[in-house]
Write a protein that binds this DNA or RNA. Structure first.
Lengths: 233, 233
DNA sequence: TGAAAAATGTGATAATTGTCACAAAAAAGT
DNA sequence: ACTTTTTTGTGACAATTATCACATTTTTCA
């Protein structure tokens, strides 16, 4: 897909989608990103990165939603998180062994910026404030994922599914009504249960009036009850 | 416990226990750490940090073993990892909200260095190479924990316990014979099962000749079989 | 060394959830 | 609009593992 001319030509310094971290860069530094970045638009469903591949670019998500996952030996997926716009994909993997440790797939149409890894590294080394911002976001991101994961780990499936619903409502869509960008299988892959169990739990929630579902359309009627289930279920 | 005079007085630049990251600091910078660090020796079993407490110092583990864990609402522990000497405790938590997200307890007697967080932050901001090294180690550390956790998540208890045994043998003690610094309950807390199940699995492994156990003393006789169990169990 | 506290073993039972194959429904593509 | 592919629902059954209370062993500490 070929981006519009004006989206191609907008400079990083003028870009409304730029990351928090880049705010600490000076204009010269922003321009160095601009000269070395490559803009790409990508269709829903496209595979963006595969775990194990070498990292040549930092990928910045300007718009759209991305699922981050790993392939397990029993060829099931483990979905780690849904990535929101204005974040980098897999920052954690980038430093160190320069190999991508996670895979990424577009859940919606996306707009991506590819930034050369050497340019990015140079910025980190030359601008301590930028380094600090990146460090902060790596830390926060990994804590978030980790906590979510640990939380889930000791819950039964009702609690896990409740968690997912709350996650999409409160973190991804900021609405009690949304269209979940995942199949039942993928929801299952996110919480580590089976497709069938996932469907059964959603049906049960529906039956109890906690949610309404028609396929991927979900309305949360009773968030309080859902939170109770998340806590004790 | 009061450290020996010569251990108190050794400067960071001369310290044999210093971290890889500090290797990129110049002497002036190392001395700034030295002037602002506080050495502490701590007995086995001591609580070093509690999740939720504000971060005032970076803690560097010079010697000993530490368990990193979080307290779950059902007041069980979830042990995240065993921390080896020459690493910082909870680097991930330090940037961002300046709150400790994990708790730490000494599994053996320890020697710790407390470094003022502002001094540390200044170094990160002033020395890009140092920032890069820290970034690398935060990334690597969080990937490691995360991977271990995900791996465990879809395994049955035999596989999980096998994992733990391999972990202690290959990563912590580098020996097929070791004294595990955890109770059965703690092993259970690490893999997310019950104390009873943990004991039963270890007894079973013993019965099959895969390991020998007398209390905390463990000898791994058949690492190959253990790895097979880890993979398929 | 002896008493108290902590850690571990035991066995039966119950709860949770994955699994299977197939039908039905929905979505995608032409 | 129609075919093909993908996704979802269903119900019975089996496997896994937590739970319980108590006995026993080991460790800790005075």
């Amino acid at each position: 897909m070929i981006p519009d001319e004006d989206i191609i030509n907008i400079r990083c310094r003028d870009c409304l989608d730029k990351s928090c971290a880049t705010a600490v860069l000076d204009i010269r530094e922003m321009d160095s990103i601009f000269r070395n970045r490559y803009l790409n638009e990508v269709k829903k469903g496209t595979n963006i990165l595969n775990e194990g591949s070498p990292t040549s670019h930092i990928i910045y998500l300007r718009s759209g939603l991305v699922k981050e996952f790993i392939n397990r030996p029993d060829n099931q997926e483990q979905i780690l998180q849904i990535i929101l716009p204005h974040s980098y994909l897999g920052l954690t993997s980038i430093f160190g062994d320069k190999v991508n440790h996670y895979s990424y797939t577009a859940l919606t149409d996306l707009r991506l910026c590819y930034i050369d890894i050497d340019v990015f590294t140079t910025l980190v080394k030359d601008n301590g404030n930028f380094a600090y911002e990146i460090l902060t976001s790596v830390g926060r991101e990994s804590l978030n994922s980790f906590h979510r994961f640990i939380d889930q780990n000791h819950k039964k499936i009702y609690g896990r599914i409740a968690d997912i619903l709350i996650y999409f409502s409160k973190i991804i869509f900021l609405d009690n009504k949304f269209q979940i960008p995942l199949t039942r299988q993928e929801i299952a892959d996110m919480v580590g249960t089976s497709r069938e169990s996932t469907g059964r739990v959603l049906a049960k929630f529906q039956g109890e009036g906690i949610i309404d579902t028609h396929g991927r359309n979900i309305i949360i009627n009773d968030i309080v009850k859902l939170e109770k289930i998340s806590r004790y279920g």
